[in-house]
Design a protein around this nucleic acid. Sequence first.
RNA 1: CGGAGUGUAGCGCAGCCUGGUAGCGCACCUGCUUUGGGAGCAGGGGGUCGGAGGUUCGAAUCCUCUCACUCCGACCA
Length: 468
Amino acid sequence: MGLQVLPPSPKSAGPIRHRRYRDMRLTNYFLPVLRETPAEAQIASHRLMLRAGMIRQASAGIYSWLPLGFKVLRRLEQIVHEEQQRAGHIPLLMPTLQSADLWRESGRYDDYGEEMLRITDRQGREMLYGPTNEELITDIFRSAVGSYRDLPVTLYHIQWKFRDEMRPRFGVMRGREFLMKDGYNFDLTKEDALHAYNRHMVTYIRTYERMGLKAIPMRADSGPIGGDYTHEFLVLAPTGESEVFYDRAVTDLTLGNREIDFADREAVREICDTWTAPYARTDETHDAAVFEVVPEERRVVGRGIEVGQIFYFGTEYSEPMKAVVVNEAGERVPVHMGSHGIGVSRLVGALIEANHDDRGIIWPEGVTPFHVGIVNLKQGDGEADAACEALYSGLKARGLDPLYDDRDERAGGKFATMDLIGLPWRITVGPRGLKNGVVELTSRRTGESEEMSPEAAIDRCAQIYAGL
RNA sequence: CGGAGUGUAGCGCAGCCUGGUAGCGCACCUGCUUUGGGAGCAGGGGGUCGGAGGUUCGAAUCCUCUCACUCCGACCA
């Protein structure tokens, strides 16, 4: 046999496929969905995150975030940043590894126990992977601030934490490594610090609301962090770890998109009063006698997932760590502090627990990894392909982030994938509809479909996401 | 950390009891036919059976040790 010139085959045009930056066509993306559920996953969010190709377990309680999961995580971070900065809180970034010395100073190096991952570096220095950052932030503060004139200040960051849980489980809901927003306020007086506490309560309520969650502030135990004032935020979900008792009135409250002046102490406190007035407690602080006072038809016993907690702890850290400022009278006084946390990676799980059905995830519009899924029912059909391309670029031109399923798959497979990954809106494009000049816009949540022109579908999507 | 389990192909599993050199479904690759809710046929690729040691002519299978992971409990963003 001599040299043979093979004719170019349209289906194997060569091994190299060029991937365009930020091109969200499914054939150019990385979305390893699983048809079957991995055996280790017990609860819905864990199962769905694995099946939808959002995460992959690296070791017990430690996960890689695959592109789809990473996108959601980033979106949640963005919302947290926006809401914190709206209230005047200042972002920074502290490291994951910390020196043991600081923790000896606060006395927590020995108190924290086995949950703290301790590491020794090559010089024999004792380090630890931070489970939280009170010590480090206090050190930063005290070395930079000396006068009451520099107060108040609230600093926060979003950083990975590690707590060596005895028994990690439920996927990202109870991992050992987790992403957390933690913030710390430094104030001259208790009153100032309580205003910071209230500010955080309001920002948290708004943060969860934007994510499409019903999160209720509940009076909590302060635990190892200490302090008298603390609230936990619980997302209602039947699979929650904590039993919760609340007055139905609290779930009717909505903060909405109203303008809030965070400098106005009265206004901020009023919102907090409104939200904390109805009875709402976890099993840890539940008081049956007080609960009885709530009219029976409004009493609800359910389950919840803790997704945040705020503390005021006064001078508990500033005293031992000598975080002091000089006040107006020239005296050195310890600052009043509080800390506030949102479990960002855990929220991804909580969101799914609260928003799914037997076919998959149902993302709220505020957090969805992609705004709209485009399903081409007849890939390779010139007209269908062209219509999808037009929709895709039309949606992008309106500032939306579509995911175009351009795989050479059957309709059933494409629908199943879309349902699984839970994009709230889907545009279905097929020859049958195109004959009449229409595509189909479908809500993942209700399953309702409506036929309309491609232009109208783009308009509707732009409308849905306006302001989110 | 106490108790109970499981490690065999990317995922779900069978084979182990009774040793004879690895199989099924899905996924993947090729071709043809199909194509509005997870197609059909034909062909194909992929696993040193978690690891180490031992018993044996021969080990996925029996024994010992070890590692990893999961579930129940106590603990926790």
